[in-house]
């Protein structure tokens, strides 16, 4: 062969398929932030106007000023056997305990269910059965079994946070691309290394999604359970206030719950950005 003369070869990074880097940062969320703030301000303004011009009786719609007054009163003097902080902490303690149980049981069991046919076959039956039931339907049973104290409520909440976390961990294991596993095996990964370096991180985005669902499920079950059977907590405070038509206290309770829910959602978003910035990237 008589071919082109010797020439040193170097391989500069090709630019033909280069994506703009770094990728655009969540521009959608920053661009809607202003709109959302204006909407929130408009809703509060509407509330002011409606109360000011007496569109509804103060019994049904207390004015923002009344709610604010009541807020500081409940904060300082308390309502229904406790201050606002007591009720909030009681509720938070329950949900924290339930999330703890859900995470520490749900993630390992879900991972095992994703990895092993036997574990999946055995545990999916009871979980599927109870997860289909509305939690409040079996709360009376839990109260009969465990009494009216904290145990029955924490078990109820744990059941509602456990299932979504467990399902998510299981789905996470199953979502690992087969090629990624083959690649690790051909690089000489042991079974344990395969699990810790490939399967677990690959399942993390699904687990985070499950955690978000669990927080939502936990929060709604929590308040509902406290409405029915509790001596403390935000749900209990709201129910006690409603019995005396203290609508302003009901509003205080609702606002605190809304703030908590918002804080959970923001916290999870922050955690996702920290833990899995690569989600959906590859």
């Amino acid at each position: 062969m008589t071919l082109a003369a010797n020439s040193p070869t170097s391989f500069p990074p090709s630019t033909t398929q280069r994506r703009p880097s770094p990728p655009p940062r969540r521009s959608a969320s920053t661009s809607t932030l202003g709109i959302s703030l204006v909407t929130l301000a408009a809703m509060i303004a509407l509330w002011f106007i409606a109360a000011r011009f007496g569109w509804a009786s103060p019994l049904f719609l207390p004015s923002p000023a009344e709610v604010l007054t009541q807020f500081s009163a409940v904060w300082a003097d308390g309502y229904a056997n406790g201050t606002l902080l007591d009720h909030t902490l009681a509720s938070l303690g329950r949900i924290a305990a339930a999330l703890g149980v859900g995470i520490f049981l749900g993630i390992p069991l879900g991972l095992l269910m994703g990895l092993n046919r036997w574990v999946k076959g055995i545990f999916s039956v009871p979980i599927d059965l109870y997860w289909g039931l509305p939690p409040l339907a079996y709360l009376p049973l839990l109260i009969i079994w465990l009494g009216i104290g904290e145990t029955s409520k924490i078990v109820l909440l744990s059941l509602s946070t456990f299932a979504p976390i467990c399902f998510a961990a299981q789905a996470g294991v199953r979502s690992v691309p087969a090629e990624r596993i083959n690649a690790a095996l051909s690089l000489g990964a042991s079974r344990l290394q395969l699990f810790t370096s490939i399967i677990l991180p690959s399942a993390l985005p699904e687990i985070m999604t499950g955690l978000k669902i669990a927080i939502g499920a936990g929060l709604s079950t929590l308040v509902a359970a406290e409405l029915i059977a509790a001596q403390s907590g935000l749900g209990y405070m709201i129910m006690s206030a409603a019995n005396f038509l203290a609508t302003d206290v009901v509003f205080v309770g609702l606002i605190v719950i809304a703030i908590l829910a918002f804080a959970f959602t923001s916290g999870m978003r922050w955690l996702e950005r920290r833990l899995i910035p690569w989600k959906g990237k590859l």
């Binding site: 990074p13 398929q17 994506r19 590859l282």
Partner: peptide, 9 residues
């Protein structure tokens, strides 16, 4: 991170 690289890279 790999997702900032082109397919060839």
């Amino acid at each position: 991170p790999p997702y900032e690289l082109s397919g060839g890279m």
